[in-house]
Write a protein that binds this DNA or RNA. Structure first.
Lengths: 193, 193
DNA sequence: CTAAAGCGTTGATAAATATCAACGCTTTTT
DNA sequence: AAAAAGCGTTGATATTTATCAACGCTTTAG
């Protein structure tokens, strides 16, 4: 069960991983299964866990004054899931995170993660890389959002993330892109011609 | 000249900073002055330097097919400036970074930064915190962009970043928010009433 | 000192996108 | 098996935002 996580760490660090270190990691991460639609984190709570998705699909979203959901993240296998803002700042989360499919996770307490970062150099390396990548991805998305039309944003997204298109329904993709489901439907209709 | 940087590091790390370590940091960072409108990084080049702004104001922007500029970042004193995507991935940058005012920087080679991260624990701590914060800020901005109207985005921005409003002209703020300068002008007119 | 460029504003119009309502089809629940 | 909920689509319309053009005012450059 933990082997997927250990593989992932090895692939994202240059430093080696001793078997002692592997033990520390395995000890910190517990398997957790969530059925479709179950919450990993609810708005208002402080995010105390970080999860690594072994199998499944999840989403992170905010709910505005009118009750409309806005998808801020979609996650599938090999993604790290948490509300970083809440976990780092120890503030109540503005987001909900739940499962879109039955999902198998490996979860660790945020505090234990910090411990591993100090104790296991390759783990620290991996998380640093993750932090940087998250920022880069977020920047690209932001740049795309302020620079492009809805149509271009969808095309870019579909090109770069075909897995998500297959896995999540259109209305979630639309919300992720910051447009309505009707607009996305029309964009797709255009694209075919 | 370097004291502002050393202070900054101390404030953003829990670990102490020995005088040996201070020496390493000072050695890695060279002062650099840029006159208004000079480039720190030009599109197409790999970002080889990271800068810490001691005094001044800068911007990072992309230029689309039609020659329109889209501001992705505004920077002032105590901000770190670089194209992270280019620096981390070692790919040609899609952005320009230039000065909006005469600016004093402390710059270090990306490679030397990586060295410091390994050698000086508190420096590593500080950069990790910066990475996390950058991501959080980027996430907030993204969430605001997909959830709110232009008007709310401007209000939020003006509330949270009054320094930027004072320091940069409206058309740059507009571009930063992903709207045209005319629209921002009209939003501001409404707001007064 | 004068010309040019930069900046913010306004008006008229066009384009993009949202909203509201309704419909068929499929999947899930009872 | 029937009812309900979820999903994508379409049409009519409203709203938001962009575009284009012009103008005064200020700052910068020659």
């Amino acid at each position: 069960m933990h082997s997927k996580l250990l593989d992932y760490i090895r692939q994202h660090a240059t430093l080696p991983l001793s078997s002692d270190e592997e033990g520390l990691i395995v000890a910190a991460f517990q398997p957790k299964k969530l059925r479709k639609k179950q919450y990993f984190l609810e708005e208002g709570n402080v995010c105390k866990y970080v999860g690594f998705i072994v199998k499944g699909a999840m989403r992170q979203y905010s709910v505005d004054d009118k009750g409309a959901e806005h998808i801020v993240h979609l996650y599938i296998e090999n993604y790290w899931v948490s509300d970083r803002e809440s976990a780092v700042m120890l503030t109540p989360s503005k987001y909900n995170i739940d499962t879109w499919e039955d999902t198998e996770l490996l979860i660790a307490k945020v505090a234990d993660m910090l411990d591993l970062i100090e104790r296991v150099p390759s783990f620290g390396q991996m998380t640093r890389l993750m932090d940087q990548r998250s920022f880069i991805v977020s920047q690209r998305r932001l740049n795309s959002t302020i620079s492009n039309t809805a149509e271009k944003r969808y095309e870019e997204f579909a090109d770069n993330h075909p897995q998500f298109i297959q896995r999540f329904p259109q209305h979630l993709i639309a919300s992720f892109l910051g447009i309505t489901k009707e607009t996305l439907s029309r964009i797709r209709k255009q694209a075919i011609k």
